[in-house]
Nucleic acid binder design. Sequence first.
DNA 1: CTCAGTGTTCAGTG
DNA 2: TCACTGAACACTGA
Length: 265
Amino acid sequence: MPELPEVESFRRQIEEAIRGKTVKDVEVRPDSIVFCGESPAKVKKVFLGQKVKECKRKGKYLWLELDQKPWPVFHLGMKGFYVIAKEKPLPSAKSVKLVLEMNDGTFFVFKDPRRFGRVFLMDDPLAEKPIGYLGADVHTELPSVQELKELIGHKKAPIKSALLNQETLAGIGNWMADEILFQSGIDPHRRCCDLTPIEIKRIHSKIRSVTTLSVDAGADDSRYPASWIFHHRWGKKAGKISTGEKIKHSVVGGRTTAWVPAKQK
DNA sequence: CTCAGTGTTCAGTG
DNA sequence: TCACTGAACACTGA
């Protein structure tokens, strides 16, 4: 689920559901991996009795600003998600990591079936380790074309790897990178330093449009334009885009990559 | 039964 | 030292 559009969409739902409310009860399901070694008791103490002032995001990280620090910072990993509910999850509910009961009876639930997600406790999320090293957020602080050129123009890595690198730009994941390069008409294997200024300009424009469109669609992929490769990239057998050209799959930047050789040079 | 996957980190290489 | 690559991590579903 979680690339920038999905995380931004969760952020908005979370603000809507629990902003300004106070945490009345906390259930932490012990998991030293997801909670980075913090004890359940400590995690519980961070939330209990605190008012949620804001829910913020940078790249794929999201955090709650509470009355007191430290603040909880979440990363959804590959399969993590949040649920806003009116009822408490049953003890038997699988992959639940954290449940917050707010003072109005709303429940905030964090689930992570694959345990690649993380919860960190931080005093200054924007300055500290993972988030502090992120590049500019492609939704809220997209660099100019010129800045993008300076950021990637000299790199020897494939353009797809550069787009996936969160220290270069924050928020793009596997499907977004493929979508951006598909719409830019650029082969994902191309080295950054071989791209022309015109091509970098095209990539810049598509970073903006793919991000904006998917965020505006609330990360509901059924609302993404029918022309997007997104709708066809997973059917690995005989995959074709809407105009009939064949989709090829290869590995770039360590990730499965879907691209259309007939359209991407 | 085996393998890939909407991600990140870290050891290893040049 | 730096840029880059590939494996490891944990678990589910095809």
